[in-house]
């Protein structure tokens, strides 16, 4: 990307290992200063992946950054002539339920918040972007919903979960879970920009395995516990700030939330470079 385009970043913290030639602006998405960055840089395309993922004791901040931050970013796109937008949402917006069909397509309802209120902000961001997509057809917008992203620098909930040595799981459940390497997600974003994609796309990786297999393959050890123990434990530990998974996340350890990435593959010929084993290895490497 760097060869043909000028790339700059926006974050609230400095990026120590930024590649040469990438300028990083330290601003908050919600602040006026962010609009100034867009005004002066005049980007042709914006990739929005600046969602706060880890859960904190203050759910309000997360919701504000993610939902209001995204809304303002969308407004800036309209006001400052941005031609292309790629929003990186998440495959978890569909929710994990026992009645989920396997390999859901992009038209499946975003039901995650039915049992997992803590990620309703991600569902709202996704919905905002989808509405934007129809409202401003002159801006080529694509919403990408990747499956669980793993990689050395990934701080997503699934990555943090699998990085532990002893990993609590729900006794008697072992859902099929899909994974993708962070580098393949970057490739998918680049493809979305190159093809000027417009629409909503699931992005799937090299495949899927039962959760316990993923735990073993990435070097951890599963610690199965009965569901009622786990729920009680998670509720308390989360409230006290010891762990960063809200109890609603437990459903993703019980039921499948598998996506079909066919639409994206048809549009871009995307093929993940990293296999399952390499993807698991990348977590602790």
């Amino acid at each position: 990307m760097l060869e043909n385009h000028e790339v700059c970043g926006v974050d609230v913290e400095p990026w120590q290992s930024a590649p040469q030639g990438v300028k990083v602006h330290i601003v908050d998405l919600r602040k006026k200063k962010f609009e100034d960055v867009i005004r002066t840089e005049k980007p042709a395309a914006i990739v929005h992946m600046g969602m706060l993922r880890p859960f904190r004791s203050n759910a309000g901040i997360r919701h504000d950054v993610n939902v209001r931050g995204t809304k303002q970013l969308l407004d800036h796109c309209v006001n400052h002539g941005v031609q292309q937008l790629v929003l990186v949402s998440s495959g978890s917006v569909y929710g994990a339920f026992s009645e989920n069909p396997y390999y859901m397509d992009e038209d499946s309802p975003l039901s995650a918040s039915r049992s997992y209120a803590a990620i309703r902000d991600l569902v709202e961001v996704d919905t905002l972007a989808c509405a934007f997509l129809w409202r401003y057809p002159q801006i080529r917008t694509s919403v990408l919903r990747p499956v669980n992203v793993l990689g050395h620098s990934v701080r997503s909930m699934m990555a943090q979960y699998l990085r532990q040595d002893r990993i609590p799981t729900v006794m008697g459940f072992d859902p099929m879970t899909q994974f993708i390497h962070e580098a393949d997600v970057s490739e998918a974003i680049a493809l979305a920009l190159e093809h000027g994609l417009q629409g909503v796309f699931n992005v799937t990786g090299p495949g899927e395995v039962p959760l316990h297999t993923a735990i073993e393959a990435s070097g951890g050890r599963a610690l199965p516990m009965p569901e009622f123990v786990m729920r009680a434990l998670f509720e308390r530990l989360f409230r006290w700030g010891v762990i960063s998974y809200p109890p609603g996340a437990i459903d993703y350890l019980k039921f499948p939330n598998t996506l079909s990435g066919e639409r994206f593959v048809e549009a871009t010929n995307f093929r993940p470079l990293f296999g399952l084993e390499e993807t698991f290895d990348s977590l602790r490497g």
Binding site: E99, Y102, M171, G172, F173, M176, F255
Partner: peptide, 18 residues
């Protein structure tokens, strides 16, 4: 069936689907 512990695993491994 997939809501019952252990049954849920046996269910999927034996090739059953909801």
């Amino acid at each position: 069936l997939p809501r019952l512990p252990f049954v849920s695993i046996a269910f999927a491994r034996s090739g059953a689907l909801v």
